[in-house]
Amino acid sequence: MSGRIALLRFPGVNCEAETALVLERAGARVDWIQFGDVLDPDDYDGFVLPGGFSYEDRVRAGAVASRSEWMRALETADEAGKPILGICNGAQVLVESGIVPGGPARAVRLALAANGGEGRGGYLCRWVHVEVTLSACPWLRSLDGTRWPVPVAHGEGRFTSLDPEVIAGIETGSLCPLRYVDPEGKLASGGPWDPNGAVGSAAAVCNERGNAVALMPHPERAAWLRQVPEGAPGEWGARRRSARTAAALEAPGPGQALFDAFVHAASGVRV
């Protein structure tokens, strides 16, 4: 059974086409919801907020979009436990709306601050490595322990909070399904493979129930083997270098598995 996914297009989003392709390859039926459209949460099994910008990231990245009427629909979907994925700017929207990490009265308990760390200020676009770690997110459990290369492209990607409970949740794991690591799997924190200085080297943060995930890297840009750099270290780099034909290069890349897991979870909601 295929899940029906709503792909939300705020003004300024620019990763929706590749995100839709990857979701469809995972078996989803994807509806592009245009800015101004009414979003009925009952019509969909899962919701994806793709990357790019929203409202030119005025005020703060994701801040204006998180005041959209669509948020009421997303809150209803969240209460029903439907999977929600925000990628990059979509992650910023989920954080600014309080959907991630959730909690009492949907208070905003987290921020995606400007990239920090030695030599890592400003916008950063490069390949990093992430590892899926056991967290509250049920739909990523099948990928627990996997490690893969993926691009980041953001200026404000540093998960941070003044709330000790949220910090603890990220550091101990329940709220953190993906962390930045080096190619050998060591936590990237503060090192050359850490793109932004996020607490706990968090590449993603989920809500307490685990159905909604705010993810800063772009797995849709790593969903075909051809997208992996030939010089990438580790298994995926080796696969890329050994791919000699067009067909081999069109094979799924490291980011595809995350969308497969998301669509699988979304399909289960309606069963």
Binding site: A63, E75, E96, I99, A107, V108, A111, A113, A114, S161
Partner: peptide, 16 residues
């Protein structure tokens, strides 16, 4: 100060 999706806008106290 942002308190939830529909309250506050100009400041996210976790980063500002």
């Amino acid at each position: 100060v942002v308190r939830s999706a529909f309250q506050g806008l100009l400041v996210n106290r976790h980063s500002q």
